[in-house]
């Protein structure tokens, strides 16, 4: 999949040939810095990349159907019903003039028109109960809830129609750490009960390491490393992944100074020649500056885009 933002100053390749598969009930962590294209990738899954973003090429199959070929009307049937999205900022993700219940009724009745308003409200109440919001509060307005509660409501809206896939785009960035842990645990337990697949987009590798089955690391719009949680944690190959892992604080090594990755992410209008990461990579060689590395399979299900690895074979 490739997504570009076509601006006046030139095309920005926000997502460059990234691909992955996700099985039912799996939890994928999508990790990367700001501007690495992870949110764009998430939005392109429901074909809502904001203007002037365009999905240039690629395939996106859900249950075998390529959703990039669907009409806009068919696509609406997918959004919310099969693929649900949870946004970053719960404070602004609900319409302030609509009651919580109205959000649910509208969602349920858009996708299942035969359901009466009463029944939709009843279903909304059960879903709210599932995420730990008192069902009586269904007639309240969004401003009467705190940020954490609103994110719970957003999650309830996401699971209301039991979708196959939930994409959570930094669902906890706007919340404090305690609420953050609660929300993430909630997402995980809902995943366990309903068995939907989940994509967790975040810049915080520690969150992903704690909860996800598989991890995809992105850098500058490109695929960097993809592996099982354990494999990535125990055996990171790409220098960028290693840098990310080293920058997580460790309580046992409290004395040790945290390491940061030097430099800043590339300007995607004019990305560096060769490997996107070479200006910040301590292993960079001449080859890295000249050519773009291809993706190599290091072990079963462990893919890396780096020359350093290719040399080992």
């Amino acid at each position: 999949m490739t997504v570009e933002y076509q601006t006046r100053r030139g095309d920005i390749r926000a997502v460059n040939n990234v691909s992955f598969t996700l099985e039912e009930g799996e939890m994928l962590g999508l990790v990367g810095e700001s501007g690495s294209g992870k949110s764009t990738l998430g939005l392109s899954i429901i074909r809502l990349v904001p203007h002037p973003g365009v999905i240039v090429s690629g395939h996106l199959r859900i249950d075998g159907t390529d959703i990039l070929n669907l009409s806009e009307k068919e696509m609406r049937g997918i959004r919310g019903k099969k693929v649900a999205f949870i946004f970053q900022d719960p404070m602004t993700s609900l319409s302030p003039v609509k009651k919580i219940g109205a959000h649910f009724v509208e969602l349920i009745r858009t996708h299942e028109p035969n359901i009466s308003e009463k029944e939709a409200l009843k279903r909304a109440k059960t879903t709210l109960n599932d995420v730990g919001i008192l069902p009586e509060r269904i007639n309240d307005y969004p401003h009467q809830f705190s940020g954490g509660m609103r994110q719970r409501i957003m999650i309830a809206l996401a699971i209301a129609l039991s979708p196959d896939l939930i994409i959570a785009d930094e669902p906890t960035t706007a919340l404090d750490v305690i609420v953050q842990a609660k929300i993430l645990d909630l997402l995980k337990s809902l995943r366990d009960t309903y068995g939907m697949a989940l994509i967790l987009i975040t810049h915080d590798l520690s969150i992903v390491l704690e909860r996800c089955d598989k991890i995809l690391v992105m850098y500058g719009g490109s695929f960097v490393e993809y592996a099982d949680n354990k494999e990535l944690h125990g055996n990171p190959i790409h220098p960028y992944t290693r840098g990310l892992l080293r920058s997580i604080p460790n309580i046992e090594l409290a004395e040790q100074k945290l390491e940061a990755i030097q430099g800043s992410p590339p300007d995607l209008l004019s990305p560096p020649e060769g490997c996107h990461f070479w200006p910040r990579c301590s292993f960079a060689k001449k080859q890295c500056r000249m050519e773009r590395p291809t993706i190599v399979e290091f072990g079963p299900g462990h893919l890396v885009r780096c020359f350093k690895e290719a040399e080992r074979f």
């Binding site: 809502l48 959004r79 919310g80 999205f85 946004f87 319409s95 509208e106």
Partner: peptide
Amino acid sequence: RLDFVTAARARGLK
């Protein structure tokens, strides 16, 4: 341009 409009679209509303 606000978030809840995108969120509403993401829920598949007309």
